[in-house]
Design a protein around this nucleic acid. Sequence first.
DNA 1: ATTTTATGTCAGCCTTGTTGACTTTCCAAG
DNA 2: CTTGGAAAGTCAACAAGGCTGACATAAAAT
Lengths: 166, 166
Amino acid sequence: MADTGATGGESLLFLTDEQLRKGIEAMFFAYRGFTADPDRILGQHDYGRAHHRAIHFVHRQPGLTVTTLLAVLGVTKQSLNRVLRTLIEDGLVESRVGRKDKRERHLHLTPAGAALERELSEAQRVRMRAAYRAAGPQAVAGFRQVLEAMMDTDMRRHYQMLRDGA
Amino acid sequence: MADTGATGGESLLFLTDEQLRKGIEAMFFAYRGFTADPDRILGQHDYGRAHHRAIHFVHRQPGLTVTTLLAVLGVTKQSLNRVLRTLIEDGLVESRVGRKDKRERHLHLTPAGAALERELSEAQRVRMRAAYRAAGPQAVAGFRQVLEAMMDTDMRRHYQMLRDGA
DNA sequence: ATTTTATGTCAGCCTTGTTGACTTTCCAAG
DNA sequence: CTTGGAAAGTCAACAAGGCTGACATAAAAT
């Protein structure tokens, strides 16, 4: 039981290994809840989590290129391509040749893709909304602060870009 | 920018779809950071994330039974067994027949297992500590509140049991 | 004209999840 | 004491979604 190793009045008890451990376990269990609802819906449509991620970011940034999506998702092009191909074949995503640079493919959701996106994100928002409401605005602000500080620098760049409006 | 501090007037601006979306994306990007450091270490040892999870909870609750671990991890017994078997073969985990109920196997880390656990958890703590420090104690409290509210009921039970001391 | 970039594709491999079937051991209730 | 069910383990087969490496094409940039 350490006492307040205070630096400048700040109690540092929240930095004990014990506190950190609780945060680590909270992340583990919460992430499961976070993905549970979309996963159920995806299962019905014969898709997986990877499809969800692609759909999410195409929705968020309509017209983004494959390279950009690759960077945001942090997977290999072969991995993404497998997912993207099925989404295009199934008519959920449209791939348009770039006007300025014809090598680029700009990705958009079709109406069907947008419909699935809404279904997935609404399910996720329902849980998120309940959690936010239960915890309150102050807690939510802290939640976002800690998560942001936890990101890798590259990922934080992408996050902030989307956060502040693409 | 909205004033989020209200408690009596209760500004509900933090529950907008926009705010929820930011939280969702924060979870996605942060979880990647959360697992990045252990993943690197696991790769060197020829293990995966599943091994990490098993090691973590065996460390947390020494002597827990396979059934309990199964419930905490939320995977099938076949899936867990594959991982557990390699850990036992490699001498990181020990499986002891229950004294009271001889059907049960009680799991413990060997010294080698405990060493890997420390390596993994210390890496994870370093990042967590930095994030906590950057965000401050209030933010950390909020972080934990929101995560807890996000869990499925079953998982919250496990979380709280560990949180309050097994 | 040459090099580089963006994209896509084939092939193969690994981890980690799943279902289903079946066995052994052992506790506990009838 | 018998029997039903629980705890654990195993085999087989399959799928999602990561990965590497090699290679091809079109178009931009130098």
